[in-house]
């Protein structure tokens, strides 16, 4: 006698994870190698500033919102920050996730408590709902939104929802919900290198390029 939920969990923990990991890592390395090797056209003009330092600075400075954004686009401003911070905290400070990182890389750090993890998860989910709503209602954003954007929103929010449901046993068989949670993460991993999700890695390069180009010209960025 088998338990289908357990079998699915074991598939998600075993072959499913291996496949997703191969596509995730392979895809990221592939795209980064391309970006780095293609490089940029050499700037022959004499440098008026330090492109390298300005590039490094820009990697971090672009995380700070520009002035007036809160008035201009409050949903994007608040929703964006809440989602990113919530996702980051839920991913890096929930004990079972730390156990995975510890197993893979041998490093670990203290876990956050249930109240923090569940609060930030709920806030992150609400943020995604608000961001999606603004994309659907704002005519300009709506016309700019592609299928890819909706897919990315869905793939980012599913692990948060399924994780919350699995931990709190809101509905469904808990073993099944744990399997569904892992599968939702694996779907995110597979889509990651080939969608806008890649920004989680490529933002470093994009910001550096932008910053260093401006820095070389002696301009702020």
């Amino acid at each position: 006698m088998n338990n289908p939920a357990f079998d699915l969990l074991m598939w998600a923990r075993g072959p499913g994870f291996d496949i997703a990991l191969a596509i995730f890592i392979g895809g990221i390395v592939l795209r980064l190698t391309e970006i780095i090797i293609l490089g940029r056209k050499k700037d022959m003009a004499p440098a008026k500033g330090n492109g390298f330092l300005q590039g490094l600075k820009t990697i971090f400075s672009r995380s700070v919102p520009r002035k007036g954004l809160i008035k201009f686009a409050p949903v994007t401003y608040l929703g964006g920050y809440i989602f990113h911070l919530g996702f980051f905290i839920a991913f890096f400070f929930f004990a079972p996730h730390i156990a995975l990182i510890q197993d893979a890389f041998g490093i670990s750090w203290p876990a956050a408590g249930r109240v923090i993890i569940e609060s930030v998860t709920a806030l992150a989910v609400l943020a995604v709902v608000a961001l999606t709503y603004s994309r659907l209602t704002d005519p300009v954003r709506k016309s700019l939104t592609t299928f890819d954007d909706y897919l990315v929103l869905l793939l980012s929010v599913l692990p948060l929802i399924t994780g919350y449901v699995a931990v709190n046993k809101l509905f469904g068989d808990p073993t099944m919900m744990l399997a569904v949670h892992l599968l939702s993460v694996e779907a995110l991993m597979i889509a990651f290198p080939f969608t806008k999700l890649m920004h989680a890695v490529s933002f470093v390069f994009a910001r550096y390029y932008n910053g260093s180009i401006q820095g070389r010209k002696g301009a702020e960025s």
Partner: peptide, 21 residues
């Protein structure tokens, strides 16, 4: 732990880095 993959996923990760590169 339940959250840790059951297979030998590290080999797969290394192979993916080499293959992707």
């Amino acid at each position: 732990p339940l959250s840790v993959p059951s297979g030998d996923y590290r080999k797969m990760g290394v192979a993916a880095v080499v293959g992707g590169a």
